Simulated assay, not measured.
Amino acid sequence: MGAGNHTGVSQFLLLGLSDNPELQPLLFGLFLSMYLVTVLGNLLIILAVSSDSHLHTPMYFFLANLSFVDICFVSTTIPRMLVNIQTQSKGISYIGCLTQVYFLMIFAVMDSFLLTVMAYDRFVAICLPLHYTVIINPRFCGLLVLMCWFITFWVALLHILLLRQLTFCTGTEIPHFFCELAQILKVACSDTLINNIFLFVATGLLGVFPLTGILFSYSRIVSSLMRISSAAGKYKAFSTCGSHLSVVSLFYGTGVWIYLTSAVTHSPQRSSIASVMYTVLTPMLNPFIYSLRNKDVKGALGRLLSRGAPCLRWATDLRTKWTL
């Protein structure tokens, strides 16, 4: 095919994190380990919440949804990257790239929405404790999560429909290890003004507004805690927010850091390395933050693993008998 514009381009080339062949086995092992830890950690959180009756509360319902979204988030990017490294191929089909963009946007925005909903849950629990069970009821929680999914599906779909209107040059290279919307817009061969405007508006509505809601919730929480005279009461109330606040700081802190890094350095390679923070590192650390800082989750995980230990010993004994 020629070097001109081509609306039916068959594939893009993902340049990845490094062109050095000697680093490829190291990158493969590192990202495979991080992927397995992320999936296992978040899966344990989901199993602990679903199997322990003590965690059948709105806060942990949202946490289980957050863990599910994190599993889907990393599964959208890392397996494809590992396949490309293993096969020494940089290609990704046009449809595959758009599909990756679609699901990446869904799960990234859902992360933001769920963190906002969890902040609202803590606000009601601490500032309006007498009305908590009336406001944060199971039906309301389910509708809230469904509404978040509905909004993200349609916003991501609009991005893809606008992206489909663009033309791309054959052999287009994306300086990233996954198909990121901003990077794709930069390498398009046609005018991307409408796409950039919609991206700016969507980022403002779906990024800035949730963050504003989180900051407002915690400002009210801090204000309520300041009126509590007992130091033990303050510590107990704030300890329920510690894990969530840590995850919020990690999620939005890495996002701001990536934005500043991209704006200052203008280096695609450094930008892709910085993207590892929110696409891989943040979902991997979330289960550890909640299990280490939250006594309820830690206790539920302990009970879950203790129930699984007898089954593991039984399977080991059975395998030993068959071997003999």
Rank of each mutant, 00 (worst) to 15 (best):
residue 3 A to P: 01
residue 3 A to I: 02
residue 5 N to P: 06
residue 5 N to D: 08
residue 7 T to G: 02
residue 9 V to K: 07
residue 12 F to Y: 13
residue 20 N to R: 11
residue 21 P to K: 06
residue 22 E to S: 12
residue 25 P to S: 06
residue 30 L to W: 02
residue 30 L to A: 14
residue 32 L to F: 08
residue 33 S to V: 12
residue 39 V to S: 00
residue 40 L to C: 09
residue 41 G to S: 10
residue 42 N to S: 07
residue 44 L to N: 03
residue 44 L to Q: 13
residue 44 L to E: 11
residue 46 I to A: 04
residue 50 S to C: 09
residue 57 T to R: 11
residue 57 T to S: 13
residue 59 M to Q: 15
residue 59 M to G: 14
residue 60 Y to R: 04
residue 61 F to K: 09
residue 63 L to G: 00
residue 66 L to A: 04
residue 67 S to A: 15
residue 68 F to E: 04
residue 69 V to T: 12
residue 75 S to H: 04
residue 80 R to V: 07
residue 81 M to H: 09
residue 84 N to L: 10
residue 84 N to M: 13
residue 84 N to E: 00
residue 85 I to T: 05
residue 92 I to V: 15
residue 93 S to M: 09
residue 95 I to W: 03
residue 96 G to P: 06
residue 97 C to K: 01
residue 100 Q to W: 03
residue 101 V to P: 00
residue 106 I to T: 02
residue 111 D to G: 15
residue 113 F to C: 14
residue 113 F to H: 15
residue 114 L to A: 01
residue 117 V to I: 12
residue 120 Y to Q: 11
residue 122 R to V: 08
residue 122 R to T: 07
residue 124 V to S: 04
residue 127 C to M: 02
residue 130 L to S: 12
residue 132 Y to S: 05
residue 133 T to Y: 07
residue 134 V to D: 10
residue 134 V to G: 00
residue 135 I to D: 01
residue 140 F to R: 13
residue 141 C to V: 08
residue 141 C to Q: 04
residue 144 L to G: 00
residue 145 V to L: 13
residue 147 M to K: 06
residue 148 C to K: 03
residue 151 I to H: 01
residue 154 W to L: 10
residue 154 W to E: 11
residue 160 I to L: 05
residue 160 I to H: 01
residue 162 L to Q: 14
residue 162 L to R: 14
residue 165 Q to L: 02
residue 171 G to E: 11
residue 172 T to Q: 09
residue 172 T to D: 05
residue 173 E to S: 09
residue 173 E to M: 14
residue 174 I to W: 04
residue 176 H to E: 13
residue 180 E to P: 00
residue 182 A to R: 12
residue 184 I to Y: 06
residue 184 I to Q: 12
residue 196 N to H: 07
residue 201 V to D: 04
residue 205 L to V: 15
residue 205 L to C: 14
residue 206 L to H: 02
residue 206 L to A: 00
residue 206 L to V: 04
residue 208 V to D: 03
residue 209 F to S: 02
residue 210 P to R: 07
residue 212 T to V: 15
residue 216 F to H: 13
residue 217 S to I: 03
residue 217 S to V: 07
residue 218 Y to T: 02
residue 219 S to V: 00
residue 220 R to N: 07
residue 222 V to E: 05
residue 224 S to C: 13
residue 233 G to M: 03
residue 233 G to P: 06
residue 235 Y to A: 15
residue 238 F to I: 10
residue 243 S to L: 02
residue 247 V to D: 02
residue 247 V to C: 12
residue 250 L to E: 01
residue 251 F to E: 01
residue 252 Y to H: 14
residue 258 I to R: 05
residue 261 T to F: 02
residue 266 H to V: 04
residue 266 H to D: 06
residue 267 S to M: 01
residue 267 S to P: 10
residue 269 Q to P: 00
residue 271 S to D: 13
residue 272 S to R: 07
residue 274 A to M: 15
residue 276 V to I: 15
residue 276 V to Q: 01
residue 283 P to H: 06
residue 283 P to N: 10
residue 291 S to L: 12
residue 292 L to E: 01
residue 295 K to G: 02
residue 299 G to K: 10
residue 306 S to Y: 08
residue 307 R to L: 05
residue 308 G to V: 06
residue 308 G to S: 08
residue 309 A to P: 00
residue 312 L to R: 07
residue 313 R to T: 12
residue 314 W to C: 13
residue 316 T to D: 12
residue 316 T to K: 14
residue 318 L to M: 12
residue 318 L to W: 11
residue 318 L to R: 12
residue 320 T to N: 10
residue 323 T to M: 09
residue 323 T to E: 08
